[in-house]
Design a protein around this nucleic acid. Structure first.
Length: 313
DNA sequence: CTCATTTGACCGGT
DNA sequence: ACCGGTCAAATGAG
């Protein structure tokens, strides 16, 4: 980087163009959200959201090329082991050939999900967190709370580089615990007071569990954010940052008042997606993940679910 | 007291 | 040698 000023200038211009475009799309989307869905239909909003994402992707791509490295940033690249560094983020560490080359082996039981929420209807226990080279955000490691029972499902969650509102979650291994078999969270949007925009997840099996005590404990966590207006009524341990006073509820912002009530004053107006990378199948997983995705997508959220085979990643 | 999270240390893959 | 993943003691909340 810095080796060719002309290119940098051109790229800066391109960045500006992309960002302006993204802002325009976001503005259009915002305006759209103040109109009844019947007027424009759901597809237009989705198209705008896609344009915004595209703008982000392009911006990240330009930023990536600024480094002059092999960094590859995409809309779903959370800056994991292969992530690149930002233009301004010239690493102070001496860079050797092996740096950033490490890649965890992937199997067919590994898949990745990019989401505005790390919610997946499972109960997880955090067992580690690491700062990842060239990544702005730490990677958090979770295992199924039923590991003592033999469940080998794990997941990694990391905020996406350049788009920290998105979570990338990588899942590893299937759930073998039985709790998840019966676990079928159902996304419910509460439009009634006292908690406007309240969204809760309830399973179909009367798992009417109290919110985990992690809920407020996790307010320290940087990586996992669920809006406080999202209420979890299951024993989902990865509902975190519920106490965070500055929530992000992407689908909420995207779908606007017509769908779920109203956008709170404090809700930041931005194209917000969170990255969730999940690894491995819960063998106990039945429908919760996909069911949730479906619900969220219906609300305008954009999830990217990537399955890995041995060669991907 | 119990249990989840944090975080530095260690291990093993690349 | 480096880096990511996991372990486990320390810490803290309920």
């Amino acid at each position: 980087m810095g080796s060719n000023g002309e290119n940098v200038h051109a790229k800066t211009t391109r960045l500006m163009v992309e960002l302006v475009k993204g802002k325009e799309f976001a503005t259009q989307l915002q305006n759209l959200l103040h109109k009844p869905v019947e007027e424009h239909g759901p597809l237009l909003a989705e198209e705008l959201a896609l344009q915004i994402l595209r703008s982000f992707t392009e911006t990240l791509s330009v930023l990536s090329s600024c480094t002059g490295s092999s960094a590859q940033i995409s809309a779903v690249d959370g800056g994991g082991s292969g992530g690149g560094s930002a233009c301004s983020g010239e690493t102070k560490k001496k860079v050797k050939d092996r740096r950033g080359c490490y890649k965890r082996r992937r199997t067919s039981d590994t898949w990745e999900r990019v989401s505005s929420t790390m919610e997946d209807g499972r109960t997880w226990r955090k067992y580690g967190q690491k700062d990842i080279l060239n990544s702005e955000y730490p990677r958090c490691y979770f295992r199924c709370t039923h590991k003592p029972e033999g469940c080998k499902a794990t997941k990694q969650v990391q905020r996406m580089k350049g788009n920290p509102i998105l979570y990338r979650t990588t899942y590893f291994n299937h759930h073998t615990c039985k709790q998840a078999q019966s676990y079928l969270p159902h996304l419910i949007i509460h439009s009634d007071p006292p908690e406007p925009n309240l969204i809760s997840f309830q399973d179909n099996n009367n798992n009417n569990n109290i919110p985990s005590k992690q809920d407020d404990r996790n307010s320290q966590k940087p990586a996992i954010n669920i809006s406080p207006v999202v209420k979890q009524e299951d024993t989902q341990s990865d509902i975190q940052d519920l106490s965070d006073a500055k929530p992000t509820l992407p689908w909420q912002e995207i779908i606007g008042p017509e769908t779920i009530g109203y956008k709170p004053e404090w809700a930041p107006m931005r194209s917000s997606y969170q990255e969730e990378v999940v690894s491995g199948f819960h063998s106990c997983e039945s429908t919760s993940l996909h069911g949730l995705d479906m619900e969220v997508n219906q609300l305008g959220d954009i999830d990217n679910l990537h399955y890995f085979d041995d060669k991907m990643y």
